[in-house]
Design a protein around this nucleic acid. Structure first.
Lengths: 341, 341
DNA sequence: GTGAAAGCGCTAACAC
DNA sequence: GTGTTAGCGCTTTCAC
């Protein structure tokens, strides 16, 4: 493959000229249309090789009116959960010949929609949301763009969903704690309680607690009942005389943060405090973290989401909202132990 | 902003029609060309609003012959270091009005170049490599595409580079261990020793060792002198009678893995083994990890890289390879302690 | 089996 | 100031 030394990349016309054929014949060869003489094909392929020609995806998409790009709106990638899902999506999408553009959902109000707008301007074929968006502007933007969207690991009433069975997960996690003999079990929600996955896990938690005659207690990291999780209130919560002996965190990120608070306060896990998380982010299997958690099958979910989106795009999937729920699995490690009597 | 209920997104022609003006006048307004009557502008803006019109970025890029997308070739995003850099890049690029498409550098040989090729096919304005690529095919592909490329946190002889002062970092890290009284200090390299950042840190390590009359010893995770880091050899390495009392890992990922091995073997850190890493990935500041490490200024590096790439694209930067080196900083935490006498 | 021609949605001269 | 026109690189009928 020699490379042309021209400033600009070779176009289909350059190839046609070099092969002594027409534009459209070259196009036919490229697209693998049938009914082409072997000799013609070879001539075209030779020219393509000589020129190092690569079709311009922009031009192709413009005329075809369909792109082969997914737009992914993710949360902060420094949260390993998003990073891991993102990774799975990119990998699997590639096998389906889709590329991935991404923007992170900006937490700051200013220009909240800029990233999504840019994705849409590029006429992405579909949208994948990794983080909950409860924002009418977003919804309207997506709706009016008529681009199919799938929410992974989170929810919206207006688009397809792939998520784990969060309610059941919440029940299982809570029951695990209860079966360990804990009675004062708190639920630790994310700062933004608008997240439906979070809310569902919480529902499961409440169900399990009440089914066992226990009193649910929900806390938030930033606002809500817990003013703010700083040393002071935290200290009372997990170290005081009337402390909680176990916490179920709506996600591993929070669970790890809780672990860290406990460590700073000298509260021993799991002796004095049991913790169970949700997600099974890869690093929690480290001996030093060793977090008992509900595992979400990230790879599976990523695949399902990609397939669902591809199905919508192809028109194989039609009609109203599709909701695909996956079972999650309790991974017992060392952060939750029997309550002391 | 009402939305049109037509199947297809509104085009500039729809806007022109609705405003009773021509295509190019609308284009002029959109692009902010000067010399337009206020009333005309308002009419256009009204029509745009009515139709929910958004310019088609594909068409724009096709005619302008320049895209506003960066292609990022990253390593596995489940490595937090890549995820964090990626995040910084996306955020900062957005402020410069660049979007990000990404593909992860596939480790499997088959179709190693597919991702990069797709990026190039989409005529990305520039390329950002987060992971070392020592592959002639890749080099040729990028070279013949004439798309500027910047390597972040890694190196190549044929493109611009933004990296930390790895040699000095290696010296500083090693000296820290030496000043703690350690003499048997090992260096733990990544599996692929072709990484130049890795190699430079190693050079720094060797320099510091030799300057202090100490004997360097380099180990690799997968191949090389250490057959394979499984329990057995690892056990001898950090637990035997002639063990190493300290290790400098070329990156935090490896340092954490080492920590985990030590934990499994019952080797106490930092009492029996001191560990120092490189990168300062966010999670190592957790009490439970508490890793002493050389911090790379990830945000700064991401910015510099984006600016450098933008500079190349704009033609502000011309000529041969530019190499920008940033200082890294020792963050003393709890994983390295004085050697026992 | 191959080629001519009409766009896809937009920008950027250049006329009017 | 605003409109006309000629593409950007490609796909896709539809003739030949």
């Amino acid at each position: 493959m020699k490379q042309s030394d021209l400033r600009k990349p070779a176009t289909i016309i350059d190839v046609a000229r070099r092969a002594g054929l027409s534009k459209s014949t070259v196009s036919n060869v490229i697209r693998g249309a049938r009914g082409i003489t072997t000799s013609t094909r070879e001539r075209v392929e030779q020219a393509i090789d000589d020129l190092g020609y690569r079709p311009n995806a922009l031009a192709r998409q413009l005329v075809q009116q369909r792109a082969s790009i997914f737009g992914v709106v993710s949360g902060d990638l420094s949260n390993p959960f998003f990073a891991e899902i993102m990774n799975e999506i990119e990998q699997y999408a590639a096998t389906r010949d889709y590329r991935v553009m991404f923007c992170s959902a900006p937490s700051d109000m200013r220009d909240r929609l800029a990233g999504l707008r840019a994705l849409l301007d590029h006429r992405v074929a579909g949208l994948l949301f990794l983080t909950q968006i409860n924002d009418d502007d977003t919804r309207n933007l997506v709706a009016s763009s008529r681009v199919p969207a799938v929410f992974v690991t989170c929810a919206a009433e207006w688009a397809d969903i792939v998520c784990s069975d969060d309610v059941r997960g919440g029940v299982v996690a809570t029951n695990h704690l209860i079966s360990l003999g804990h009675t004062r079990i708190g639920y630790l929600a994310d700062s933004l309680s608008e997240d439906e996955a979070d809310r569902n896990r919480q529902i499961g938690y409440v169900q399990a607690m009440q089914a066992n005659g226990l009193k649910p207690a929900v806390f938030h990291w930033k606002d809500g009942g817990m003013t703010d999780v700083r040393e002071m209130p935290m200290k009372r919560l997990i170290g005081g005389s009337n402390r909680y002996t176990a916490f179920f965190s709506s996600n591993d990120f929070g669970a790890i943060a809780l672990l860290d608070h406990a460590d700073r306060l000298g509260v021993k896990v799991p002796e004095d405090l049991s913790v169970i998380g949700f997600d099974d982010v890869s690093l929690v299997s480290l001996r030093r973290i060793n977090l008992t958690t509900m595992a979400q099958p990230k790879a599976t979910m990523a695949r399902l989401a990609v397939n669902m989106l591809a199905g919508r795009i192809a028109g194989d999937i039609q009609g109203g909202q599709v909701r695909q729920t996956i079972d999650c699995e309790l991974i017992v490690r060392g952060s939750a132990a029997p309550a002391r009597s």
